[in-house]
Design a protein around this nucleic acid. Sequence first.
DNA 1: CCGGTCACCTGTCGT
DNA 2: CACGACAGGTGACCG
Lengths: 216, 216
Amino acid sequence: METSPTFHHPQPPSSTVGFNLNIHNQHFPIQHMFEKPLTPSDVGKLNRLVIPKQHAENYFPTDQHNASLLTFEDDSGKLWPFRYSYWNSSQSYVLTKGWSRYVKDKRLDAGDVVLFHRHVLDSDRMFIGWRRRAAEVAAQPLHGGAQVSEWSTRVFYDAQANYPSQHLTHAGERYEMVDSYQRGAIATRRLRLFGVNLECLDDSEPSTPNGPSQGG
Amino acid sequence: METSPTFHHPQPPSSTVGFNLNIHNQHFPIQHMFEKPLTPSDVGKLNRLVIPKQHAENYFPTDQHNASLLTFEDDSGKLWPFRYSYWNSSQSYVLTKGWSRYVKDKRLDAGDVVLFHRHVLDSDRMFIGWRRRAAEVAAQPLHGGAQVSEWSTRVFYDAQANYPSQHLTHAGERYEMVDSYQRGAIATRRLRLFGVNLECLDDSEPSTPNGPSQGG
DNA sequence: CCGGTCACCTGTCGT
DNA sequence: CACGACAGGTGACCG
């Protein structure tokens, strides 16, 4: 059993973009940047996390000469430095060095979701969290259903990928705030938080818009 | 079939550390430095040979600013220049550029053994040789023995790694001189060769003392 | 564009 | 059990 995961406040926050993060009894105004359901490769031996291009370019610093270091804080205050680079060969942004340690430490599995947040008042300060994948439903038997163990992660994973656009609590494991889904569009919204007027991006759709349907 | 491999004199020499090398009918006093059973990676697509740290630091020049060029002679007198460097990340010494050419030219395979020698009177002059791995024994059928092709190289490789401490000829392919095995200890011995008194290191144990037994 | 090279990275194993 | 060594990898780069 896992204990005390993710950044999420016990009760669902009222806003998409800002909520409180309790770290060591200190409360931080945190902006949700994006999240990504982990692919088998993300948690496998490739030791890398592919950051969806849109999110990378929206939120992560544009490293001039490739290969930078991004450091995130987790819910315990522990720092997680990751090597962040752009792979020309695959035209993709990735977290590499350090990522496998995080996966192991948090015992992440395919279908689990990593969350990226940042400090509202200091966008250089970034946070990483995660939540368990949705519990297994008595899943749809595809094609007759002979496959067993090999398939199970994929099934969870796919189920996770295109989850409905609105959900709050789900099997007691999900209390993520995702309201206005606007696929493909980036909306700005103004909000007042901690006495500060902020203009925020609100593209918190799931990170794999086309889904991780990489298998045949 | 291979023709005329290795440096070894047709009859086993009497000394561990010095023996004659016949190159183009010239005889050289040659000191055995060390040898290494080749791993699959050493002969694979990584195009590099890992030099066990002890041997590298004992025998190869300490390159000040990393990345030097080491040139060896083979039994035909051909020169083989290799780039020699230290990889900080893995804390290991490697031969890179040029190595794959040697592997290809000599048709080396995993389990084969590369030999490094040097001129007794001119230690800058170094020689490279090789011998075939030990012929496959009607090997121990592990767990029932269903595996075939995939296993074969590994089996050779492991069989090679922890060969007995005393062997001279073996299946007509091995006439390496290895007498006093003193694992973990380095003995010095004095010998008189070509009218010259020499004091020599004698740590010619196999390069992977623990063996590459990484499989379960 | 492709193969070789280079400088990294990490899991595993033995000590 | 922490740590060194290294086998087996990677992407970037260059000719």
